[in-house]
């Protein structure tokens, strides 16, 4: 290793000032008059050391950045993880509601098809954001429910049966199902990390970047509206292992578009709108016709209302 030249014997470098340091300043830091204070890079720190420090510092800083990004995502949430929202949308100005007219529904299953296509829901009927049930009520009070393939292929057209198991049919109707967007929602209450939450306009969303996939909300939902997204090839947009459910197509309604199922329904059996707006389709229907909600006794206060459901939906 070569011996280093004393500072006072070296010629000033191109970046060094030939002027001596101020005597007053030098005396304050213990230097003789005319002696220069040592600079950071004037021979005491080698280039190799700087490079080594750089090699260590760059990954450290990158790692710290990643950690802070991750923490920030968990603390403040990640907009990318939630449902995309239109830029100028004011959530506090709405109270979204939904009305399903079971008198009109023909069980064609177009809503299920549209929902799966719009939201990247798996093909498997076990995983559905919305589905269509057929309820057949007989004279003895029994309600028989079926929903082959979740109703995605539609029910066979024609008149409903007049007799089932020897008992005359008194009522038969199709009952589309979806998340009830409850005002008193058990799913949001039980989530241990706040991944499922209610927006100011009353829609319950899931932050897929925060969900841990514990399934607590799936078990807690009284309406069977949730599922854990499987890691399957037919899950084009869903993040595997997190909870999923109907969001009223939040990315569409915040952009002024109707939910995909509402748009696809050929008979207008599904309607959505602002419950605070008396001219909205849901407000109009609710003003004109009596509506019910599913499992009212649970006190969940669903925002999905049903027209024509006289018999209690047991499913």
């Amino acid at each position: 290793m070569s011996e280093r030249t004393p500072l006072d014997q070296r010629a000033p470098g191109p970046m060094e000032s030939p002027e001596p340091a101020s005597p007053a300043l030098g005396s304050e830091i213990g230097l003789e008059a005319g002696e220069r204070p040592p600079g950071f890079l004037d021979g005491r720190v080698s280039r190799r050391t700087v490079l080594q420090a750089g090699v260590v510092a760059v990954p450290c800083l990158a790692g710290a950045g990643l950690v802070f990004t991750a923490l920030d995502r968990f603390v403040n949430g990640d907009p990318a993880g939630a449902e995309p929202v239109a830029a100028r949308y004011d959530a506090s100005g709405h109270r979204w509601g939904f009305v399903v007219d079971t008198d009109s529904c023909v069980g064609c299953g177009m809503c299920v098809v549209a929902c799966k296509a719009e939201n990247g829901v798996p093909e498997d009927p076990e995983y559905s954001r919305t589905w269509v049930e057929r309820h057949i009520t007989t004279a003895d009070g029994t309600v028989r429910v079926d929903s082959p393939e979740g109703g995605i292929d539609g029910f066979e057209p024609g008149d409903p049966p007049t007799m089932v198991d020897g008992s005359p049919v008194v009522d038969a109707r199709f009952v589309p199902r979806l998340c009830m967007q409850c005002e008193n929602s058990p799913c949001t209450a039980v989530c241990p990390v706040g991944a499922t939450y209610r927006t100011p306009d009353g829609v319950i969303l899931i932050d897929e970047e925060r969900c841990i996939g514990c399934g607590y909300c799936v078990v807690a939902c009284p309406y069977g509206a949730r599922y854990i997204v499987p890691a399957a090839e037919d899950t084009p947009r869903g993040v595997p292992g997190v909870a999923d459910k109907c969001t009223f197509c939040y990315h569409r309604i915040t952009a002024g578009l109707p939910p995909a199922c509402v748009e696809a329904c050929p008979v207008g059996a599904r309607r959505y709108g602002d419950l605070d707006d008396p001219t909205s389709p849901v407000s109009v229907v609710m003003a004109e016709q009596p509506t019910t909600v599913l499992k009212e006794e649970l006190g969940t206060k669903p925002r999905v209302h049903y027209v024509g459901l006289e018999a209690e939906v047991v499913s």
């Binding site: 299920v112 009927p125 076990e126 995983y127 559905s128 589905w131 269509v132 049930e133 429910v145 079926d146 929903s147 393939e149 979740g150 109703g151 995605i152 199902r177 078990v219 939902c221 009284p222 309406y223 069977g224 509206a225 599922y227 499913s315």
Partner: peptide, 12 residues
């Protein structure tokens, strides 16, 4: 969980 409280995702 064995007693169905609801249909789930179209499964009865």
């Amino acid at each position: 969980q064995v007693v169905p409280g609801s249909t789930v995702g179209g499964v009865v």
